[in-house]
């Protein structure tokens, strides 16, 4: 029982910390938001494992539910605004392939 729980905690940490690093260093907004949603899920699991179900509840509801939905909308709007800026002030046209696959034209 104890060793299993220790293994569980170790694996949880080993997934959460690299996930946080990938999320922070992600250059593209929508990718970062979806990674953040996944990160919040593992964070809620950590709170649950720390025997704090109320904190896990708040983390899941506010962090992934509300925050995720709001940030998805914000990231979509940000991509559109930056594409419009490019069209206005020169540079590559927004329809061109700019290397990032999630960018909305």
């Amino acid at each position: 029982m104890e060793t299993m729980l220790l293994l569980f905690d170790a694996l949880l940490l080993l997934t959460t910390i690299p996930l946080a690093l990938v999320t922070v260093t992600s250059p593209e907004p929508r990718r970062a938001v979806m990674l953040f949603i996944a990160f919040t899920l593992t964070l809620a699991l950590i709170w649950a494992r720390l025997a704090a179900p109320d904190v896990a509840l708040a983390e899941a509801a506010v962090g992934a539910g509300l925050g995720g939905a709001l940030m998805l909308a914000a990231a979509r709007r940000a991509a559109r605004v930056s594409a419009a800026d490019t069209a206005l002030y020169g540079g590559t046209p927004p329809t061109a392939d700019r290397g990032t696959d999630d960018r909305q034209a």
Binding site: I37, L41, A44, A48, R49, A51, P53, D54, A56, L57, A60, A61, A64, G65, L66, G68, A69, L72, A73
Partner: peptide, 27 residues
């Protein structure tokens, strides 16, 4: 975890997880 550790409140957290998946797909 709720069954193994004996914390029934974790069932409610699972319910919230299901809810937020719906919200995210809708968004």
């Amino acid at each position: 975890l709720a069954a193994a550790l004996g914390i029934p409140a974790l069932f409610d957290v699972a319910l919230i997880f299901a809810l937020l998946a719906v919200i995210n797909v809708a968004a």
